[in-house]
């Protein structure tokens, strides 16, 4: 299964949520890999705490060089072996493989799509799909050549299953932008159809994930005045109505991740240790990632809209 992670705008928490989902999926016993296709700023290494590739690899063997045909295989980082974080360095019993394919430091965004580039991308996806239960591809924010690249590559491999996750924050502008990214001009459906995807089928393979959501009944809001709480609650129902009108409502949503102080201050994996031992992260956050990691492969969550 290939999963493409995209967001309407930058700063939505796409990378940090994507990496956490992949990490939870590995803990659930699956072999997973994470491909850093955010070519402008490849920072997945930092989130996995692998300092050697914190901002991409420097050894001319990252995804950039692979796609440009400059190295035969992109570098693979075994996170269980190479992470600097104590809590990640041993593979927990029953966990699957957790592999990162880093981008290249100073690589830059793609500037054009060529047939060779699409071919190499499809070849990479095909090979990874042979050995991993889940391959998550971080496709950067907004409309980009990268999004076009993976849409073009997936057309060439009709038998390989894939899904899209669109990450957005729970605000007015983000809801409208997330809808636009999917259904607007040059959006995913538009570009997908141009490359040969059936828009109906593609629509069913796209789900939304809300990030940094502050629920009106959250523990953080206990200290608020009644007026503030009433205002928040009104906002929330307004947003729900807006989301429904834009096709970003509950039915098209795969899940939501609550606002967590840890993720606001540092992009990192939330381990059970962060929740149970040091208690810096909220249990709800870890539970939300765990739930998303299950839903991503649960066909009943992906039935036609």
């Amino acid at each position: 299964m290939l999963v493409f992670a995209i967001s309407d705008k930058g700063g939505t928490g796409r990378s940090v949520t994507g990496t956490n989902i992949v990490y939870r999926h590995a803990l659930q016993g699956n072999d997973v890999c994470y491909l850093d296709f955010d070519f402008g700023s490849p920072t997945a290494g930092a989130i996995f705490s692998v300092s050697a590739v914190a901002r991409g690899t420097r050894d001319r063997n990252g995804l950039h060089e692979y796609l440009r045909g400059e190295c035969p295989q992109p570098r693979r980082v075994d996170v269980w072996a190479e992470s600097d974080r104590e809590g990640l360095r041993t593979r927990p019993p029953g966990a699957g493989r957790l592999v990162l394919l880093p981008g290249s430091e100073g690589g830059g965004e793609l500037s054009a799509l060529t047939d060779e580039l699409i071919g190499r991308c499809a070849q990479l996806f095909g090979r990874l799909e042979e050995e991993f239960d889940l391959c998550m591809v971080d496709v950067s924010a907004g409309r980009s050549f990268t999004a076009e690249l993976v849409l073009a590559a997936t057309v060439r491999m009709p038998a390989i299953p894939f899904r899209w996750l669109v990450f957005h924050r729970w605000t007015r502008q983000h809801i409208i932008a997330a809808d636009g990214l999917v259904t607007g001009d040059d959006g995913l459906l538009d570009v997908g159809a141009r490359f040969g995807h059936d828009p109906e089928v593609l629509r069913d393979r796209i789900r939304f994930v809300r990030t940094a959501v502050l629920e009106p009944d959250a523990a953080e809001l206990v200290g608020l005045r009644d007026e503030q709480r009433a205002w928040l609650s009104a906002c929330d129902s307004e947003l729900r109505e807006l989301a429904r009108r834009h096709g970003v409502g509950r039915t098209a949503m795969l899940g939501k991740v609550p606002l967590d102080p840890v993720l606001q201050w540092r992009e990192q994996l939330i381990t059970d240790e962060d929740v149970l031992a040091s208690k810096i992260a909220n249990a709800e956050t870890a539970a939300a990632f765990d739930e998303l990691a299950k839903k991503i492969v649960d066909d009943s969550a992906w039935e036609g809209l």
Partner: peptide, 24 residues
């Protein structure tokens, strides 16, 4: 070798629903 093996694995005769995942 990998490139030719890719050609075999991409054959339209194969349904790509392998019973388990395994690295080459």
């Amino acid at each position: 070798s990998g490139r030719f093996l890719d050609l075999v694995q991409a054959s339209p005769l194969l349904d790509r629903r392998a019973p388990f995942k395994m690295a080459r």
